[in-house]
Amino acid sequence: MSAIVIDDLTLGYEGHPAVHHLNGSFARGSLTAVMGPNGSGKSTLLKGIMGALKPLGGKVVLDGFGQRDIAYLPQIAEIDRSFPAVVADLLALGFWKRRGAFSAIRGVDHREMEAALARVGLSGFERRTIDTLSGGQLQRALFARVLVQDAPVILLDEPFAAIDERTVADLTDLITHWHGEGRTVIAVLHDAELVQASFPQTLLLAREPIAWGATATALTADNLRRARQMVEAWDDQAPWHDHDSDHSHGHHHHPAGSGGAH
């Protein structure tokens, strides 16, 4: 049974597609890695699923849950680490769905936060300001917030960028645990070995979908090479997309000097 159905989805910025005509579905309770080179539309896809980006075409169908039931873990770079917040402030945002924008965080919530921090190995960090955390500690705190959200669907945007091995191992255990609890988890990742070891499903994306299915069949050397060959730069000369006509994408050649990666 599908939890998320992607129907001919095109997402992008200023008319340029970053995800192009994607079709497929994420099964309920599945654990999927989204892989692909930089600029291949992985993060864009997650933003499309959680509804932060309106599709240029097609749609995302959520079956049996709403957009507010998604726990989203942003890239670390999107967090303003100079903001004078403590770890507890960051975690408290995870109660948004339950407590809303206005009502107070209660005692039981605080106990839940403590438990979540203990689970990610950050016991006693509640009052630490976030500018004193290392990258790995901040990532652990973000995972604790996902725990607090207690959501049926979890989207992780590059959770392991610039994180040491020990942290990756701990947090991968947590992801596997979520999978065991029957939650649907989608994670943007770069490490093929890690994906082969721990993620049953893989979507290989290079703006166009290259492969989507069981990791063993999707993540072949041949597919990875095809993904790397994708055109990275936007093509300002690309013809506008006509929804009625048949067309083939990814073959527009750049004029000399436009800097496309061929």
Binding site: K47, M50, G51, A52, Q67, I70, A71, Y72, P74, Q75, E78, I79, D80, F83, A85, D89, L90, L93, L155
Partner: peptide, 8 residues
């Protein structure tokens, strides 16, 4: 602090 999360 975390605008993308807020959007989610």
């Amino acid at each position: 602090l975390d605008p993308t999360f807020l959007r989610s």
